[in-house]
């Protein structure tokens, strides 16, 4: 399967198209380089590179949003959600203002740049904040649709984007923020995933799990979490497996287990990054393989659990 645009480039391309038409939208950058050489045309004064200052970025975005603007703020996921978290919490989430936090280098996509630039905690951190919408588009096309929807979405939005090209999600319907996306019907085992590689791992695992009725769900919106959609998709299931490019705590696995524990306690096996920093040097795909966020790991988890409970 050939890769398409990195989700961050899909976002950039769409924002560049949209900015001239939306006079109260503004792009605030922290010298990320994502917009180098971009011509914003008539919207040129609404692209501002404020320098390497993530707290300042979040605070000023909140001030602009409180003045009636919709700022698209740009930094890496690690710097948004760990470094600038207090400004996001107090200035953005507490005020419920429409800031769009466009966070690149999510998950392990920073690859060989190492744990300083990788971000495996963002979904947990952002999901904990009241008023925040948290989204992980699974491919470039979904990212474009999300950027369109973000123009009018009330309140703050966190978008986890990647760094390099990732596989497209062929045939998927246009995602709707807040609604789980059923990619493959199946009720015996349900695999719930988010992000480009985990969703692909889920689909591949479903193909490999012959003899079982396996459903696949793309949980692109972590918050607000589609509780009804999950309960519907998992009704009658023997096993649910979550797959994410995130530490196993606090992210998608947590959202799914919290929901099911309260409403329909099915066993959940969580595939994600072990409780460690990546000490291994490699590309995003190397790291996913090394740390077991793969189709094979899903297949193994399913066999293990179904054997154990037989």
């Amino acid at each position: 399967m050939s890769d398409t645009l990195p989700t961050r480039q899909a976002y950039r391309n769409r924002l560049v198209e949209l900015l001239p038409e939306h006079e109260r939208a503004i792009c605030l950058d922290t010298d990320t380089g994502l917009f180098s050489g971009v011509d914003f045309g008539s919207a040129a004064e609404r692209y501002v590179n404020i320098g390497i200052a993530e707290h300042n970025l979040m605070g000023m975005a909140a001030g602009m949003a409180a003045s009636g603007w919709t700022p698209y703020v740009n930094t890496m996921a690690a710097f948004a959600t760990s470094r600038a978290i207090e400004a996001i919490k107090i200035d953005i989430a507490y005020n419920a203002v429409p800031v769009r936090i466009m966070a690149t280098h999510g998950g392990l996509s920073a690859g060989h740049l190492g744990p300083t630039h990788q971000c495996l905690e963002d979904l947990a951190v952002m999901r904990a904040l009241p008023n925040m919408t948290v989204v992980v588009p699974a491919d470039a096309e979904a990212t474009t649709a999300l950027v369109d929807d973000s123009l009018t979405l009330p309140g703050p939005l966190y978008v986890r984007l990647g760094r390099k090209a990732t596989p497209p999600l062929p045939g998927a319907e246009r995602p709707v923020i807040g609604k789980l996306q059923r990619l493959r019907p199946g009720t015996e085992v349900v695999i719930v995933a988010c992000g480009p590689y985990p969703v692909h791992a889920a689909l591949q695992a479903a193909d490999q799990l012959t003899g079982l009725d396996v459903g696949v769900v793309n949980a692109h919106t972590l918050k607000p979490f589609d509780v009804a959609g999950l309960l519907d998709a998992t009704a009658g299931a023997r096993l649910v497996v979550t797959v994410e490019e995130h530490w196993r705590s606090g992210g998608l696995g947590a959202a799914v287990t919290e929901t099911l524990a309260e409403h329909n306690p099915i066993h959940v096996s969580r595939i994600g990054m072990p409780d460690t920093f990546a000490g291994y040097v490699g590309s995003q795909q190397d790291l996913l393989e090394h740390y077991g966020i793969t189709a094979d790991a899903v297949v193994q988890a399913v066999h293990q659990q179904l054997t154990a409970t037989r």
């Binding site: 707290h55 000023m60 001030g63 207090e86 400004a87």
Partner: peptide
Amino acid sequence: GHGPALAIGFALAA
């Protein structure tokens, strides 16, 4: 330490 950044946002918006 939050006021300066907020103020910049209001001032730039204006």
